[in-house]
Design a protein around this nucleic acid. Structure first.
Lengths: 331, 331
DNA sequence: TATATTTACGTAACTAGTTACGTAATTAAT
DNA sequence: ATTAATTACGTAACTAGTTACGTAAATATA
C-alpha cells in the first residue's frame, strides 16, 4: 500500500473501492461456506423481502422500485437481481392487481427456508465484523457514517471548490485605480451590464469619465489583479444624500476569474476605504435577479432597506452597511 | 440509509462501494472544474509516471507491470488505461531495448505540463479531504488503514469461520459411551483409518470389543453429539507402562461435522476424565501427515517426545500431556 | 373527456474494474 | 543446445453496478 502512503487522501475513492472488493471476495467465500445458494449481491434484495414477513403477516411482497429505494440501488439493478433470483426459484413475481405496471416480488417457500438458514450466517458475520471493528481505535463503521454525514452537509466538490477559492484568492491583489485601467474599468462594466440589462445614460457618464464623476468628487476605485492581469473593479462613490455617505457601485468581475473570491476582496477593500474616510455607512443598489451578488453583499454585512430614489431602471433592491465598531470587530 | 441501520455490518462491503462511487462522482466533477484533461481513473497511472521524474532525472519510464504493481491494479487494467492515455497524447510507449517484451510508458511534454497544472488541484483536494477527516471523531482514513491491517492479519473469512465454530460448538454435547454407540464407534474409526492408512489387527481388537479392551481395563470412551446425532468419539485407555498413565486414542470426527471444534471438545473431555482418575500424564500416538490432528493435540497442551514402542505401523510421532497444576490453570 | 405528465419497469449500452487465456520473449534446468 | 518454466502483456469475456431510453399504465390538468 505504499502508493496510498504517497498519494494520500487524493485516492480515497480508489482505496474504498479496493477495500470493498476485498470484502466482497470474502463474502462470496462465506456464502459458499454456509452452503446457502445465495449470491452476495442478492443479499440486500433478499433481506428486504425476508424482513417484512416477520412484521406484517399479510403483505410479504414488494415492487421493484420499492425494493430499489429501500436498499439504495437503481431500479434496473434490482430488476436484474430479481431475474437471477427467479431463475434460482428463490422468489416469484406477480403483477399487482390494482396497478398493472407494478411487478410484485415475494419469497418462495424455498426462499423462506433460506431466510431461516441464513440467520445463523448473519449472526456469525455480524459478530465477526463487530469484533474486528471493536479492535480498532478508529471504528470504520462509525467513521463511514460520520463521513457520509459530512458529505451530505457539504459535498467533496463543494469543499474542494472552497479550497480552490482560498488558494487562488491569495494570488489576488487589490490596488488603487490608475489611468491605464480606464479602458478596463469601462469595458468590464459594460460587458456585465449588457449580459443582464441595457446600458443606461447614467452608466455611461461615470464609466466614460471616472476621474470627473467618481475620483474628483471624493470617491475612489479599486482594481483586482490576478497574476498581474486586471480581473475586477469596484468603485466607492461619494453620495449627495444626508442619510448615506458613500455608495458601493460599478463592481464587476471577469467571468473567467469567477470562484476566486475576488468580489469579496473588492468589497472588503472598498469598505475599508470608506472607513478610512470616516464614513458612517455604505449604500448600494442592485437587482434581485443577481443572486450571487446579493449573496455577496449580504456576507459583507449589507442589509436590505426600504426604497430610496435611484436613477437606474435595473435596480429593485437597496442595501446599506452600517460602519460601527461592531462591524469592525466582526471582520 | 435506513437499510444499513437494519442490516448493519453485514453489508459493509456494499456500503463501502457506494461511498466510493459517490467520491468518484465528485472526483469527475473536480477534474472537470480544474480543466485538466485527465479522467479520474487515469490518476494513479499518471501519478506514478509523474512522480519518478522528480527524483531520478534519467529513468522516467515504467513498464505496464511495474505500474500495475505500484498502484495495486491488475496489469490488464493498466494496459487499458495506458491505451486511453495514449489516445489523449498524455503518454507515449516504446519497447524496452534489453527486454523486448516490456512496454515502457512515459509522459509526453503535454503530460508533463499537466503534472504541473494538477499540482494545485492535488493540494486543494488534499486539504479538503483532510479538513473533512479532521471534523470527524472517527477518522476514516486511519480507520481504513486499521481495518486493512486487521484483515491482513486475519481475513474476514477466517473470522467468520471462527464465529461459526464458536456458535456451533455450543450445540455439541459430550456424553459417556453407551452400548447403542458401539457400531458408530467402530465405523467412524474404520472410516477415517481407511482414508489415510490400512486397518491393522490391533485396531480391530479394540474397535470390536470396546468394553473388554478399553472400559473394563479402567479406561473410558466419550461420544460427541451434534443435534442429538453422534458425530465424534474419543477413547482414554489405561496404559500398562510405568512412565505413562493413560493414552488418548481412537479420536474420530465425522467429516460433515468438521469445523465445529468437536475435536477440541472431545480432547478436553478425555483430559478431564484422566484428571479425575488422578492421572499424572496422557500419552498419544499419531502420524505427522495428519496436520490438523497434530495441531489440535498441540493446542490441547501435548508435547512431542522421543520414540516409544508402538504396536501401530502408521504412527510416527508420540506426544505427552503432563497434568500438573500449571496445565489446569492454563485451561 | 381529451391531453399532458408522472410512474413503474424492462432493455440496452456503458464503466471501471476483474479473471482467463494465448503468445512472444526471457531465464532456468537438463 | 534443447527443453521447460517463467514473465510481460495484450485480448476477450465477465461482474456489479450505472445512466439513457422507450413503453405501458396511472394520475393530473384543461
Amino acid at each position: 500500500m505504499s502508493f496510498f502512503d504517497k498519494v494520500g487522501v487524493m485516492a480515497i475513492g480508489t482505496r474504498l473501492r479496493m477495500l470493498s472488493e476485498k470484502m466482497n471476495e470474502d463474502a462470496s467465500k462465506i456464502y459458499e461456506m454456509y452452503g446457502v445458494g445465495l449470491k452476495p449481491k442478492w443479499f440486500p434484495v433478499f433481506y428486504v423481502l425476508s424482513q417484512e414477513e416477520e412484521e406484517e403477516e399479510e403483505e410479504e411482497e414488494k415492487s421493484i422500485t420499492q425494493i430499489a429505494q429501500e436498499i439504495g440501488h437503481s431500479h434496473p439493478s434490482v430488476s436484474k437481481i430479481v431475474r437471477e433470483m427467479l431463475k434460482s426459484g428463490i422468489v416469484l413475481e406477480k403483477k399487482d392487481k390494482n396497478d398493472r405496471r407494478k411487478n410484485n416480488i415475494q419469497l418462495t417457500a424455498k426462499g423462506k427456508e433460506m431466510a431461516i438458514q441464513i440467520r445463523e450466517q448473519y449472526m456469525d458475520v455480524k459478530t465477526a465484523v463487530e469484533e474486528t471493528l471493536s479492535q480498532s481505535t478508529h471504528n470504520m463503521w462509525q467513521a463511514i457514517e460520520e463521513f457520509e454525514f459530512l458529505l451530505d452537509q457539504n459535498s467533496m466538490l463543494q469543499r474542494v471548490k472552497e479550497q480552490k477559492k482560498i488558494r487562488e484568492n491569495k494570488k489576488v491583489k487589490i490596488i488603487s485605480y490608475q489611468e491605464k485601467y480606464r479602458k478596463f474599468f469601462r469595458d468590464i462594466n459594460i460587458a456585465w451590464i449588457t449580459t443582464y440589462f441595457k446600458v443606461e445614460d447614467t452608466d455611461l457618464k461615470a464609466l466614460d469619465n471616472p476621474e470627473e464623476y467618481i475620483l474628483n468628487k471624493g470617491g475612489s476605485i479599486v482594481i483586482a489583479l490576478y497574476e498581474n492581469e486586471p480581473v475586477g473593479v469596484c468603485a466607492l462613490i461619494k453620495m449627495d444624500d444626508p442619510k448615506y455617505d458613500y455608495e458601493l457601485a460599478k463592481m464587476a468581475v471577469s467571468p473567467k476569474a469567477k470562484g476566486k473570491g475576488i468580489g469579496w476582496s473588492l468589497g472588503k477593500a472598498v469598505i475599508q476605504q470608506a472607513q478610512s474616510y470616516g464614513a458612517q455607512n455604505v449604500y448600494l443598489e442592485s437587482n434581485t435577479i443577481l443572486k450571487p451578488a446579493i449573496n455577496l453583499y449580504h456576507k459583507l454585512g449589507f442589509k436590505k432597506i426600504a426604497g430610496h430614489p435611484t436613477p437606474y431602471e435595473r435596480c429593485n433592491i437597496q442595501m446599506v452597511l452600517t460602519l460601527d465598531e461592531d462591524v469592525i470587530k466582526i471582520n
